[in-house]
Design a protein around this nucleic acid. Structure first.
Lengths: 129, 129
DNA sequence: TCCTGGTTACAGAATTGTGCGTAATTTACA
DNA sequence: TGTAAATTACGCACAATTCTGTAACCAGGA
């Protein structure tokens, strides 16, 4: 998704959140500040380069804040901004939606049920990785 | 995003919604049944191949229902399933989140609110029961 | 030399666009 | 009475574009 076709906020949002890493990073940062190397250890399948690029994208979108401490060895902290924290429950809701949809597919929940209470938690994410 | 790294519902969701088209298609289908050619007219920058692939992906995910009428000329209808309709307000909320975030960045109110029916807020989503 | 958090260059993988083919029926025209 | 063309929703092969990974390099102090 190099450039955008409309200027719609939904497309802008998806431009930032698209892909495997943005939502995962959001979850790893949800509980507090993390360093670059910690994020890498949390998810060893991200390459060094891509992690740097994704973090920069999230930073540019105002979701993540980057704090570099002067001096060597380098020390850089990442944490969520206020908008980033507001985003977390929305992503949670998407996870709950998916689970509910799976229930619909497997027929475990009455298809007549119209309402829904989402209860996605951090465990949903962290226990699966 | 070819394959998945965890089995978490959020990653599954993002695998389906990632990219420019899925959320846009959701919006074009929001108001009712559309034919393949209508969807193409609605958004002339999608190639027919990609539109077909994206629609199939959404169908496989249980978001969109495809109904082919026998006979020629071909006639295929697309509309949202119940899970697809449940997804719409969540996507709306992401759009609202983006606008709110922009307000934070610029300190101004975005004039684009009319284009999208994004009236959902974090509260309406997370407190849905 | 190692450490950390990056960036750059290049290569290989993945995604996307282009254009052509296909089906059965209707309409258009000579 | 032919017959040619248009229609619709794709599938396929191939080319162009874009994304991702690998490896090397940088900084300056312990």
């Amino acid at each position: 998704m190099k450039d955008v076709v409309s200027r719609c906020p939904i497309e802008e949002t998806m431009r930032v959140l698209s892909g495997r890493w943005p939502t995962l990073l959001l979850y790893y940062l949800k509980d507090g500040t993390k360093r670059f190397s910690e994020l890498r250890r949390d998810n060893p399948t991200v390459s060094h380069r891509i992690l740097a690029l994704e973090l920069r994208k999230l930073e540019d979108a105002g979701i993540v804040r980057r704090t570099a401490r002067p001096g060597y060895p380098l020390h850089v902290d990442y944490d969520l901004t206020a908008p980033g924290r507001r985003l977390v429950p929305l992503i949670d809701a998407l996870g709950s939606w998916w689970e509910r949809t799976e229930d619909d597919r497997t027929g475990q929940v009455s298809p007549m049920l119209e309402t829904y209470s989402g209860t996605a938690t951090v465990e949903t994410i962290t226990s699966a990785s």
